[in-house]
Design a binder for these strands. Sequence first.
DNA 1: CTGAAAGCGCTTACAG
DNA 2: CTGAAAGCGCTTACAG
Lengths: 335, 335
Amino acid sequence: MKEFKRVTLQDVAKEAKVSYASVSAVLNGKDGKSIRVAQKTKELILECAARLGYVPNMAARKLKNGTNSLIAVFTYEQIFPVESENEYYRFFVGIQETAEKLGYDILILNNRPTEENSSRIVLADGAVMMGVNRDDKGIERLVKANYPLVFVGRREVSDVSTHWVTFDYQKVIAQMVDHLNDLCSARTLVYVESQEQEREPRKDKRRFLLEAAQSLGLEVLIVQADERNMLSLEAFGLIEQCKVVVFDRLFLLEPFERLLERKGLKLGSDIWGAVLEDDWMGSHEHWTRWSNQRLELGSLAVEYLSHLLQKETLEQLETLTPLYLVISESSAFPK
Amino acid sequence: MKEFKRVTLQDVAKEAKVSYASVSAVLNGKDGKSIRVAQKTKELILECAARLGYVPNMAARKLKNGTNSLIAVFTYEQIFPVESENEYYRFFVGIQETAEKLGYDILILNNRPTEENSSRIVLADGAVMMGVNRDDKGIERLVKANYPLVFVGRREVSDVSTHWVTFDYQKVIAQMVDHLNDLCSARTLVYVESQEQEREPRKDKRRFLLEAAQSLGLEVLIVQADERNMLSLEAFGLIEQCKVVVFDRLFLLEPFERLLERKGLKLGSDIWGAVLEDDWMGSHEHWTRWSNQRLELGSLAVEYLSHLLQKETLEQLETLTPLYLVISESSAFPK
DNA sequence: CTGAAAGCGCTTACAG
DNA sequence: CTGAAAGCGCTTACAG
């Protein structure tokens, strides 16, 4: 078997009998700056490069330049999920489209959780990270070293400031609470939370909900679903009394609807409800929620990263993607 | 905004007040070979590296070593398809599992068709390519330069030998034809082909079918579906006469079944049929086909690549993944 | 046991 | 207009 012998600039230079500086200049279209090459030499060089099958060595280029127009997309979730609607799909589409538009290629590092991961990420000029990170020392180290890393969704790393873009939860949650308040005269609403690990987005959503309710003089009762995402009888009793319920996660809805059915209650007339997510699973259209802007957020993440990479000022860069309230049967106005 | 200042070996060496050769040795566990470092120095170095947040520069390492234990997975298809069952999913799982087992990380290059792509691939030590390649000059160049590239599915590149793994179509097709022959007394079968571009796997399947039929003294009539994957009336008439039909692609089956229904014919009793694919879409269980061994083939591709990379002999390496005939209603024996 | 030095392939400021 | 040279960060054979 023949070896993979890389054709280098040197080889091309020898073949064309010129210095390799000229070859580099021609092949990178840098002709005209500090280096100038005669038209004939140029053609000769291009011909030789093609004939020998020259493939530039990205590793060397990256080492010398510090950049390679590659951005890493990183997630700790499974990348190729079997589920029809991958939670990250729309983010990724936005990332991909925008990266292409801005002239970046994309490098997807498939998760193999190791300390080494960080050095792999660093092959790229910067990275976009989707999903909930485990408490990873490698990532933390990168952030602390000021590696250009943009999180999709707000993330904190102790002691250092992080770069992130996220949804404008505050505004849409205020609208949602307004709407629920208009809908019925109850002075109390029940907020049902899942048992998921406490992360920044979840904290944010709860805070915004409480603030919005307070500004309208509404009381909020917070209850937790159990590990099977079910409500206790007491919790359900509260909801029956208050008539208005807000869930933090989509997957809490189905168990709740089963419960409603068993009690003979009807969503949207006996009980009003909403959920603090978009309908990314495509199967909760009858719930009041917000619009799916995941593509837009992915896109924004890349724009933000691009600013970082070009050392442009971030002052006037927006970091929030607006969300739109989608009012549906679960909290529709009575006809 | 602070710059991303990379912490280098030099920085660590300065901090620990040792030469950077020692740092390199310690950090790579190479202590003991041509370089030996005292236990105390070792601990000091590790402590300094951790404190400064040293992240090895993969680009430099790759440039020096020529390897970085990264393999690229490359495909021209959309990588994050919305469809529930991605055609490449099972291949990818096999690739991923085996790469992990053999100590490789995986780098997914998202397709942006450019000449530059080839230099991006070459960041990795080798590559596995899934799916039908367009006639890409970059890929051709890599193959000609002996870059370690394994195709999933047989692929030819003019003038040079390629590395590929594929399914053992020959054996399973022979079994399938045997089965169809046992099933009914017809001496002729109809082979329906799609209008897809002619590629190696398709040529192979056709050839194996013809050979298998010939060895049993069966005649094969080849017909083409139209651009909407429909059969002409004449073609359908032939099938009605011969009673046995084989399709090359899954997507031809639904239009055919609609036609059958319209004619009041029943698959598996009036007409027998089979398809030269596995049921990767999960919705053709009632068709005689072969088993889905995509995971196994992805796995094999990585094993093959690993042999290439370690310059082991390829002599005794199997390149075929066996397929198993799955007999189903479309050609079941009458009860 | 430790350090100085060469070299991987490239880019670019600089000298001729 | 063209070439020689330094240097990006790393590894490793070799000298001390």
